[in-house]
Design a protein around this nucleic acid. Sequence first.
DNA 1: CTGTTAGCGCCTTCAG
DNA 2: CTGAAGGCGCTAACAG
Lengths: 343, 343
Amino acid sequence: MKPVNLKQLAEELGLSIATVSRALQDSHEVSAATKERVRALAAELHYEPNAYASSLRRNQSKTIGVVIPKVTNHFFALAINGIEEAARQSGYHVLIYLTHDDYEREVAIIQHLKGGRVDGILLSVASGTEDITHLESLREAGIPLVFFDRVRAEIATAKVTTNDYESGRLATAHLLAVGCQRIAHLLISNTLSIGQNRHQGYLDALAAQGHAPDPDLVLPGTTDNARNVQLIEELLRRRPDIDGIFASVERLAVGAYHACHRLGRRIPEDVKVVGFSNLESVSLFDPPLTTITQPAHDIGREAARILLRAVEKKRPVLPTQSVVLASELVPRRSTAVAVSSPL
Amino acid sequence: MKPVNLKQLAEELGLSIATVSRALQDSHEVSAATKERVRALAAELHYEPNAYASSLRRNQSKTIGVVIPKVTNHFFALAINGIEEAARQSGYHVLIYLTHDDYEREVAIIQHLKGGRVDGILLSVASGTEDITHLESLREAGIPLVFFDRVRAEIATAKVTTNDYESGRLATAHLLAVGCQRIAHLLISNTLSIGQNRHQGYLDALAAQGHAPDPDLVLPGTTDNARNVQLIEELLRRRPDIDGIFASVERLAVGAYHACHRLGRRIPEDVKVVGFSNLESVSLFDPPLTTITQPAHDIGREAARILLRAVEKKRPVLPTQSVVLASELVPRRSTAVAVSSPL
DNA sequence: CTGTTAGCGCCTTCAG
DNA sequence: CTGAAGGCGCTAACAG
């Protein structure tokens, strides 16, 4: 069954295609009566304009592309949620592409997207990406780009990220405030800016209280979770004076949780742990971890809004501006389990 | 900067647009020499065919639409992962739409999708959906539809779901096999088919071993997690003979975990718990829960493959077939924590 | 207010 | 093997 098109509507109504088109767009230069007639028939026949013909003609797809490393990371799932919300409100569609942190794939996706399939791109850089000429080429292709979460400073465009530095500082300051003297920092090993910024926040919070930085307390994690637990365990054994842990990423927070368990160190009595986490379930741990939750939904929505604003205004290219949202320090506790909060 | 098109390539090469088009498609009726020339220039100028012009002409978008209630549920995130994988392998693009379990929104999305924007649709029905005429209308619009996870039996098309009955049966049989005599079933209270099927599996597994069903051991959960923990606690107090728990959904499994904790009942020594869960982090609980993991990734990929097969073969409409994948019973244990597996 | 005309970029007969 | 021509469905001048 072929879908109905303007031509059919026009013939049926004894009007020209142009008039029908205008009526459907509620143009001011068509009589109310004809508009009504047209709309009635369109509704009756379930007319739906062909998106591609329209896109071809107007040279705009009403679609944005979202390129992320993975969707199974809860942060990105939440971000997509925010993106979809903003897109829908503006009548835009959302194409999803997963890089799986593979550079080659990221390049291929970007190249493909230059075929006009999208009006703009939201991207969180793959961790394996070094060379960024593929991203730079988007500028000359006239496709607006907005980074979120994992950004590349070299590209002059809008970037929306968690306030990593401030989060690291707050988490550490919090641990100091509740009496910790030796605070370890578990960080991700790669060179992503988020790790560095969080670490700087950690260092500055310590310095602000007159604590000298101790490199021995800083543990770079690996991609192997089991190995991480071992490393953390070793650290805790080597340094029994550690009474606070700040974990830069979720899986390290969980690793710290287990390492403490295995060593019989109680949380929060013996060791207080604060970690980044976006997973609800982590709050159900017993004892619960004190977590820093990234405003993932807001980040996604904000990034999408910035992008859409540029797209709508017919590509007035995006100014180099970095938008940073504060993250919230949340003392998560299971609502059901009667334990004292670690805070 | 306008993107290059066939016309520009043709002029530059002194060829006709038709020849260039054919060369780029590796048509057999064009000399190897010209093909090479064309390809070289195309690569040099970073030519990328306009997706919309192509779609309009060929009447196919190389895009599938995925309509799901939410993306922040880990099951759906995993499913999208599988869908994207299958789509990419076939050179298809993935449009994401979230209904947030809102019927109106589902209808609006489907209506919009009839504009030819997608070649096929993968859908997991919104829980609020009763009337399904919008889904039926897809048939006459010639857009293939495949259900996954949340299906509607009335629509004659392919459906891909978890094998709920078998999972419930297996989980219960497992508890019986490890010596449980009184097995409680925590189930979701709504009327979704998944709950009923899992419960039937539970009942049949009990019957197979000569156990009479005991309604007092069946606890319908609420949407309030804290309340659920209370209810489970009451149940365990009232029935101290309970030595096994089968939880139909993730949050009830977590609830059972906490209830046991509060009552000082050890897992798995006093009570063995098996629950559905898709979250990795749940496996990190200590003691770990024995979980049944839905093959979400596989479900998504399989659903996408079925859809794409139909789409590729130029819409030979999908036969009414229900594809069910077995779920796997996985004794999850933290790789790092030295506890005996509950199995 | 309505109709005619001319493409958007690409693919695909039909002629050479 | 290559070129010329027509049209996918829609929109946007330009006329009336």
